[in-house]
Design a protein around this nucleic acid. Structure first.
Length: 501
RNA sequence: GGCCCCAUCGUCUAGAGGCCUAGGACGCCGGCCUCUCACGCCGGUAACACGGGUUCGAAUCCCGUUGGGGCUACCA
């Protein structure tokens, strides 16, 4: 029998790191073993479910590169794939349970149930339905129903134990004494999660249920429903919870935890896939940790999935992202970087081929400085934010200017450049100018290069000057959204500002 | 309260009774490179939660304690 798995999110919010990992592990497993991935929308919580969350969810999954074979948008032969469209199916199954005596109507009020719970808690016993309506015979139920009394339908839980072999957690066994007759159908006729889940998984032919650890305790309940319905029980694999740095379950207050936010910050999809895979799964035999989705898929196995809750570590996530950024081909990097460069005002929404190749050159120089694309702002600041007045007020800049020779170096550098005829500053001209400054001022090393860097970029940090100069010069000749001054103009403005002081 | 699950460096993990003087990765610290901040390279720091067993031998098996998490809902 071929493998069938499903990812079944609720459209009650944005796709979260925890859900993403669940989706990913389903995807790894099914692509490794062959078979189909079904995307089902669990929107039975009508109050909290919203359509735009569903749209965003699909969009996020596609961005990650997860592809599914059947689902709410692509269809399939075991649909519908949205639970609110499946209510008749659930009622049908409950009818079956009712008629074979495995389920019964319950007329207990919420108040009564609440009281039962309080009492059980006080007596230190398991909190579970007391079974008040369990003994009602068909006639009595009929009678109550006729009176128009609100009723839920509960599963008649059998005595004994329920056991299953979890692919990750191993053998789990529970005494049904601790379960109690739980609700299958609510009084408004809608299906409770455990019922809907079982009916869907079984009708959709799911062979492996891969989901979050939180569902471990639900699994015995669901197995009981499979049994009552006479359906085969699938295999289960539960994934540990992802925690925030404070040890609490990862949530919004830990920062960017939704995929939407992560995208905004400029993480690559393959980096998200890679890092999340490393949370709870280890590559075989101490292998490399930077892996492409394909590489992960080709070796993925639940045997190497860990049971411990994993803490999301931003530093390592950044390292993974940086590693993938460095491998990213320039044309693709250009496309990814474009929106982030737009934010700086340097370039507009569309770029000419000249501008594109200029940006690609820029990217090739600064890519290894980036943890994420958002850092492009700071790393390209020397281009779009050249402002002698404020640049020279920076404390590090003042420190450099504190050296008595610094201003002389800048002045001399300017003169050397002007000697060449005030044209474009090529790498060659720059080199010769530096040599000239060395000779005339007798400075070298720090005392030489730090003032020059300051004069050209206005900044005290940045990539190697050799690499930056051609970029600045080329950029000054392009029609950018924010025009940038060439090297000589920059040096002159810095000098002008210095003279004012 | 009851039930279930979990417990190795700060973090992710390797580890299925002797290969463990506990390995790798990120981080951190130090060095090298260097005009700077980074990148890169090299080196270092750092863990079996605790207490009992079992065994010739335990990170590994069993029990308990402690600490986390989950379920116990007419949420999913």
């Amino acid at each position: 029998m071929s493998v069938r798995v499903r990812f079944a999110p609720s459209p009650t919010g944005y796709l979260h790191v925890g859900n993403v990992r669940t989706a990913l592990f389903n995807w790894f497993f099914v692509r490794r073993n062959g078979g189909s991935l079904v995307l089902r929308i669990e929107d039975t919580d009508v109050e909290r479910s919203e359509r735009h969350y569903e749209d965003q969810l699909l969009e996020d999954l596609r961005w990650l590169g997860i592809n599914w074979d059947e689902g709410v948008d692509v269809g399939g032969y075991v649909g519908p794939y949205r639970q609110t469209d499946r209510f008749p199916l659930y009622r049908e199954k409950v009818q079956q349970l009712l008629s074979n005596g495995r389920a019964y109507h319950c007329f207990c009020s919420r108040e009564q149930l609440e009281e039962d719970r309080k009492k059980q808690l006080a007596e230190g016993r398991s909190i579970r339905y007391v079974g008040r309506c369990r003994g009602l015979d068909a006639k009595e139920s009929e009678e109550c129903l006729k009176q128009g009394r609100q009723a839920t339908i509960r599963l008649r839980v059998r005595p004994g134990t329920v056991a299953f072999e979890d692919l990750v957690f191993g053998l789990i066994e529970v005494d049904t004494d601790n379960v109690g007759d739980f609700i299958l159908l609510r009084s408004d006729g809608s299906a409770q999660y455990n019922l809907a889940c079982v009916v869907d998984d079984s009708m959709m032919g799911i062979t492996h249920v891969i989901r979050g650890e939180g569902h471990i305790s639900n699994t015995p309940r669901q197995i009981l429903v499979y049994e009552a319905l006479g359906l085969p029980v699938p295999k289960f694999a539960h994934l540990s919870t992802i925690l925030g740095p404070d040890g609490a379950k990862l949530s919004k207050r830990h920062g960017a935890t939704s995929l939407a936010e992560i995208r905004q910050l400029g993480y690559l999809p393959e980096a998200v896939v890679n890092y999340l895979a490393l949370l709870g799964w280890a590559p075989p035999e101490d292998g490399a940790e930077i892996l492409s989705p394909e590489e992960i898929t080709s070796v993925f196995d639940f045997k190497s999935v860990n049971v411990n809750p994993a803490t999301f570590d931003l530093k390592k996530f950044n390292w993974v992202n940086r590693s993938h950024l460095k491998e990213c081909p320039l044309p693709r990097l250009f496309n990814l970087a474009a929106p982030f460069l737009e934010r700086t005002g340097l370039v507009g929404t569309s770029s000419s081929p000249e501008i594109q190749s200029w940006i690609e050159e820029l990217l090739s120089v600064i890519v290894s400085y980036l943890d994420r694309l958002e850092d492009l702002g700071k790393e390209t600041e020397f281009l779009w934010n050249f402002d002698p007045e404020s640049d020279l007020s920076d404390s590090k800049a003042l420190e450099i200017l504190g050296d008595s020779a610094a201003i002389g170096v800048i002045r001399s550098f300017c003169q050397e450049l002007e000697k060449t005829g005030a044209g474009a500053v090529s790498y060659q001209i720059y080199k010769e100018a530096v040599l000239g400054v060395m000779k005339s001022t007798g400075t070298k090393g720090k005392g030489l290069f730090r003032p020059i860097r300051l004069a050209i970029t206005g900044k005290t940090f940045g990539p190697e000057l050799d690499k930056i100069i051609p970029i600045i010069e080329k950029g000054s000749q392009l029609t950018l959204q924010t025009e940038i001054p060439g090297v000589l103009d920059r040096v002159r403005s810095i000098l002008g500002e210095l003279d004012l002081r």
